[in-house]
Design a protein around this nucleic acid. Structure first.
Lengths: 142, 142
DNA sequence: TGAATTTACTTGTCTTGTTAAGTAATATCG
DNA sequence: CGATATTACTTAACAAGACAAGTAAATTCA
């Protein structure tokens, strides 16, 4: 009963692939003062509109405690707002602000350039294939 | 210049896929008292033999400062040993111990079962295809 | 209706991620 | 040879990951 070679272990392969892909993104983000996690939060909010924290945490791949702390500082920075749910007062609805959208706009060009470079070097077709497989895998075990 | 849909963003797709795949692994590891990161370290050491910290950090996808801290506690737990390099005294060579190997053996069965379950549900062929694409992606930008 | 659950966060604690700065050993270059 | 890099870690400080416990607002159900 022996273990798989680490480069054929899916969790490890996913992690290594992500580290590779993130390298240029980290450079971009370090020039913006925003963390990788906050970048995901505002992207999800911009894409999906105002949403509850639980849904936001799930979509941005964050745990609720981490999100709670981040939202506090992001609210102070003016990137988003939180309002108590009208129907259900336990919920808090998070919305992106214009300042938040500006951060996205300010880096959309660099972000697109990084994606385009990857697509050119890895191949558009293989990239689509990979994204399809990843999406299928994620949908697998909901 | 707009951003890619988050489920078509490779960094985010990789992260989401990994979260999905890791769920059962986390359950297994929580029953062992060992963290996901320490699990990677002993797997790499078992696979590749004694190695320097820089190489180990790279192979296990950890930053050196994180590794430094982890190695201290793992050494105390008896999972591995560190020796100063003979030729170059800056280097420290890390080796897995018998106790470390025992941790691997103790969970190899559960680990293989999780991998087999995934393979069965996702399909062996698609899994190989996905691993090939991930490996190609990782090799892309060395 | 009201006691017991469940849900949606929040807080606390500890480990790990991340960046910058520090230290000691080795390599390089004038 | 000796001053100056460079390399291989280590330490420090703060953000984020992870798990457990806490709180307040719904929901369920006897």
């Amino acid at each position: 009963m022996s273990l798989r070679r680490t480069d054929r272990s899916l969790p490890i392969a996913l992690l290594r692939a992500r580290e590779t892909v993130m390298a240029p993104v980290r450079v971009m983000l370090s020039n913006s003062g925003i963390s990788e996690q906050k970048w995901r939060v505002i992207r999800v909010l911009d894409e999906s509109g105002p949403m509850e924290q639980t849904a936001l945490a799930h979509a941005a791949c964050l745990l609720l405690p981490s999100l709670t702390r981040m939202l506090r500082s992001m609210e102070e920075e003016g990137l988003l707002t939180r309002t108590v749910g009208t129907d259900d007062k336990r919920k808090s609805i998070v919305s992106i602000t214009e300042a938040g959208r500006k951060v996205l706009r300010d880096h959309a060009g660099a972000s697109a350039a990084i994606a385009a470079d990857l697509e050119a070097r890895f191949g558009a077709e293989r990239l689509e294939e990979l994204l399809d497989l990843l999406e299928a895998l994620t949908d697998q075990e909901t």
